[in-house]
Simulated assay, not measured.
Amino acid sequence: MRSLSYKRVFDRSLLGSVIAHYKSLASISAQIKIAYREYVLKKGSPSIIPIEIDTVQRAEFENAYSNKPIGAGLSWISELYINGLNSCPFCGGDGARTIEHYLPQASYPEFSVYSLNLLPSCGSCNSKRNSLNAHGAATSPLHPYFDKHILNKLNAYTVVSLDCGVIGFYLSYDHSPFTEEEQFRIDYHMEISLDETSYINRTLDSLETLRISSEKYSTPMEFRTEVIDDQIYISERKKDYNSWHHALCKGLANLSDDELQIIFGDSFGARASAPSLGRLRNLTP
C-alpha cells in the first residue's frame, strides 16, 4: 500500500484522437471533458454521476481500452504494465501486473481510457474489489494518486502472534497519525483489497527465507541488526513501502529477543555447525 507518482498524460488533448478513431463518441465529447475535470475535483469519488451513453458508445469505450490502438493515441496504456513495482500499490502483495480501473468500467465507461483512472495493481486484489467502487458506493478505497496525504503516513506492519506455540499473522498499522475518518477509509481499503490467502502464503514464504538467513547468526540480537533492520532499510530505499515482506520485517522488529528466539531458535547458528556445500562437494568421491 503506497502512493504513486503520476506520469503526466494529456488526456484532454488525446481525446481528439480517440474520438476521431471512435466516431460514435463525438456527440458526447463535451460531457467527457467535463467528466475528466470532475474526476480531478472529486478525486475519483464514486459520487460522480456517470455520463448517459448508448450501447454503441459503451462498446467503443471497451474496444478502446482492450485494443489500445496507436491511431487513437492509446499505446501508452500498455506501458503501464512495465512499471518496476515489486509490490502492489493497493494491497502490498507481489507485483503490479494488471491494470485496474479505479472507478469500474461497468459504472463509468467514460473513464475507460482516462489515465488517472488506470492504475497498476495485482490480479488478486483487483478481482477482490471488482465493482465495489461502483457509482454510489458510500466509501472508496485509497487512491494512489489522490490519497498521498494518507498513504505517505501509513506504516503497515505484520502482527506476529505466538499463541500456544503457533505462529499467526495479521496486517495492522500505526493509527496515531490519522483521524477517525481516515482510519475508517484505511480499514475499508484493507478489508476489500487484502487477499488473506495470498497474504498468509507470501508471509510464510518470507518468514522461511528469513529463517534460512538466521542460520548465520548466533543470537537474536545479531539477527535483528544484520538481517531484519537491513531488510527494512532495503525495502525503504527501494520505495517498496508497506509490501508484505516490508510489513513482516517491521513486525519482527517489534518483537523482543526472547520472542525472536521462539520463532527462529532452532535455526540460530545452524550454518556454523553444519558442513558447507563446498566442503560436502570436496568430500564426495
Rank of each mutant, 00 (worst) to 15 (best):
I32K: 12
Y170F: 14
H135I: 12
S107C: 07
H101D: 01
Y6M: 01
L154A: 00
S24I: 10
S3F: 12
G168A: 01
S24R: 14
I53G: 00
G71C: 06
E196N: 09
V18Q: 09
I150Y: 04
N67H: 14
A72E: 06
R281T: 08
L162M: 09
E191P: 05
A35P: 04
S29F: 05
F169L: 00
S13V: 14
I150K: 05
A64D: 00
S218I: 07
I48P: 04
F184T: 12
S161I: 02
I99C: 09
E236Y: 11
L74T: 05
V40I: 15
G123P: 08
I82V: 13
Y39V: 03
N130F: 12
R8T: 14
Y6T: 02
A64R: 00
G136N: 01
I234S: 10
E259V: 09
F223N: 00
R2M: 14
R58S: 02
T225G: 05
C122T: 06
G165F: 02
R97Q: 14
I262L: 13
I263Y: 00
E60N: 13
P275Y: 03
K238G: 04
E208W: 08
T139I: 14
H149R: 07
P177D: 02
E208D: 12
S276A: 06
S124P: 09
G95I: 04
K7M: 12
Y108T: 01
I192F: 02
E191H: 13
A134T: 11
S107T: 10
D205G: 08
A247V: 05
N126C: 01
K239R: 14
I34L: 15
S176C: 06
V113Q: 01
G251T: 05
S17Q: 11
S66K: 15
M221A: 10
F268W: 03
K238W: 06
N155Q: 10
R237G: 04
S198T: 11
S112Y: 04
K238D: 09
D258M: 09
D205H: 11
L85F: 01
L25K: 00
E259Q: 15
P285M: 05
R185L: 11
S206E: 14
I32A: 07
L171P: 04
A274W: 07
E110K: 07
E208H: 12
E208N: 11
H246A: 12
C88Q: 02
N254T: 11
G93V: 03
S66I: 12
Q261C: 04
E79G: 13
Q231G: 08
E191Q: 14
G84C: 01
E191V: 09
S213C: 12
P141G: 00
P104F: 05
G269N: 02
R12T: 15
S121M: 02
T139Y: 08
S13L: 13
Y39I: 02
H101V: 02
S140Y: 10
T179D: 03
I200F: 07
F146P: 04
Q31H: 13
L151G: 09
E38R: 15
F10N: 15
L210T: 09
E180F: 08
A26C: 07
